[in-house]
Design a protein around this nucleic acid. Sequence first.
DNA 1: TATGAATGAGAATTCATTCAT
DNA 2: AATGAATGAATTCTCATTCAT
Lengths: 201, 201, 201, 201
Amino acid sequence: MPRPSVEAERRAQILRATCQVIAESGLRNLRISDVARRAGVSGGTVHYYFDTKQDLAQAAFEDCFERSLERRRWLLDSRADALTRLRQIVHSYVPGTPETVEAWKVWIELWAESPRSPRLRELNERLYGDWRRIVADIVRDGQSRGQLTDGDPLVLANMLVGMIDGLAVQVLAGSHSLTAGRMRTTCLAFVDTVLARTPVR
Amino acid sequence: MPRPSVEAERRAQILRATCQVIAESGLRNLRISDVARRAGVSGGTVHYYFDTKQDLAQAAFEDCFERSLERRRWLLDSRADALTRLRQIVHSYVPGTPETVEAWKVWIELWAESPRSPRLRELNERLYGDWRRIVADIVRDGQSRGQLTDGDPLVLANMLVGMIDGLAVQVLAGSHSLTAGRMRTTCLAFVDTVLARTPVR
Amino acid sequence: MPRPSVEAERRAQILRATCQVIAESGLRNLRISDVARRAGVSGGTVHYYFDTKQDLAQAAFEDCFERSLERRRWLLDSRADALTRLRQIVHSYVPGTPETVEAWKVWIELWAESPRSPRLRELNERLYGDWRRIVADIVRDGQSRGQLTDGDPLVLANMLVGMIDGLAVQVLAGSHSLTAGRMRTTCLAFVDTVLARTPVR
Amino acid sequence: MPRPSVEAERRAQILRATCQVIAESGLRNLRISDVARRAGVSGGTVHYYFDTKQDLAQAAFEDCFERSLERRRWLLDSRADALTRLRQIVHSYVPGTPETVEAWKVWIELWAESPRSPRLRELNERLYGDWRRIVADIVRDGQSRGQLTDGDPLVLANMLVGMIDGLAVQVLAGSHSLTAGRMRTTCLAFVDTVLARTPVR
DNA sequence: TATGAATGAGAATTCATTCAT
DNA sequence: AATGAATGAATTCTCATTCAT
């Protein structure tokens, strides 16, 4: 009579390990044996929980994505004003902590793989759609309080989200001229001088 | 008795084929045999020109990158005003034609691979640096003629370039909510309402 | 506190399931997990009753063989004359019912495996020897009553049994030109025109 | 510029090795590595010629079957009388030589596998149909010369062929009571006392 | 008795790379 | 300069078997 949680725990453990390996080695070099080693189980065990490597990768992407959004859940519940929350978003998305870096690397892998995977495409659609809508809501909120500039909130949100993604990709690609610091500066400048109604000097 | 240019031609032919395969199947699924088939040569021949698969991929990335910039060379020589040229940039980077789509797919693959490849990192650094500087120069030019808003030209260029990249990634990932059309709208809105001094209504 | 017969029941249940799986998938594809699923128990339980897969297969073969002969027991007790009983034998061995088909498939698997398994060889020897002797006895009986042709009864029995086996193999192999109907015709013709003293026209 | 025959030779070589391994170990235990070792090539080479193990097995069955019939081709061209040829058939099919034994073992494997393989079924249909027709033609020939008993030649041929197959299976299964000698005796008795018009005493 | 989580020893398959021609 | 046959290392996946509960 095994403890009822064993299965769920093992699954989660394997998924975390998979995300780490994907971030570290790329989907390209994802090997079941590496996942197994990192999760501290046997290769057979990985297959006990996931039929194929593809299933494993898909599940790992979902897990990583959902945990990432989960980590930003506090933004939604924040009572801070829109401008502050946008700044918080920028800060939280600049690849600084190992956690953020790992999440970004996994996202890029997912994007690179999406053109050939309907399931990943759908996953991205669903979660990224949510994300853009969240940002748009904040913009809309700021506009209704007169704090942010006018304009289609979804367009403005897309500008910010696109900018964050595009710059993060460069930071992650290890650019020396586009560092995390410069990314932060650039995105904050956008928030403070473009989105804010009374631009910060 | 083949002409001395045969080698160069074969090389180019193989590199094009490699870019196509990478765009189509991903670096992850790049197989020498696929490249060979597409280039109409034997697998042995591919190895005759490129020692290892890694060499081949690296060379293909360089070739693709350089051809991409080459294709935008006319922007540099354009006598059009800054605003027009920025709009042209947006238009030319929205993934519309098969050619653009292929190029974008290769770039994403390169970015995904960069964290693990100093050589790709350096390639990106060099060419992307050039690219950002080109855009910054246009911005600077527009500012000096009073056509564009004030602000650090490099920061403004980074905003635009980042936005283009980040949104293109979503378009390429097959997003239904962020299509090529919406990407174009968003980027043009940025150019016309943020960068332009007298915003287009 | 399970009744003592539970074990015997479970064993039988697992053996039946094994025969079915062998008939359906072949010994080649016999998987413990399939047996378990079909028997409605866990894989662990199968191993609780049978140490190894080999043991399971061997026991299943024995079970199937013995049940097959059991099913023909009535022939022995039959008071019908020899010719009638030989015709009954033919009819009962033509692969028609699902039960017969399953049994034949298992036999063929056993024969295919025998060259490499002393235990299966011995099993076949014992049970097939019995079977040939039964048929020979019927022939002998028919001869002594003047109903059947002269000749070594064992040789005549071997002719009939061999013919049945060889033709059944073709029927089972799905031959379109050697169907169950043609097998029946052929074997009955042998009984009626070769074995019968006064050949049926 | 490789010799033109290398490919055909290697293919044949691998197919022979596969037949041997199937005869020796059974389809059940067919391992690519064993085939490779016996053919004196690497495992990779086997896959160079045959995409999958299934393809290899199918091709091997076809090769074995065709070579078997080829080996009996002389029967067709024989000018001997029908009775003699039927006796020759019996002699040539009794599993005596290593070659015959190997062929029989492969056939039994094929029959055991046929129910699950349309391609093998078709192969058996085609080649076994040929074979039965050949025997029927000999019977018909003997009848027309008054040498053989009357009766549907196809039915008589099926009796003989079925008997040969069924008894051979027992011989191959290693029966002590049904040996090659007894098989020969039985089949010859059938030819000489049943098929021959003037039975040999 | 029975379970099912976990294992690890195989086996098939893939594919970059080599090399004789 | 080019080929393609041959290789073997790497990797996924399967499944009988074990064992704690």
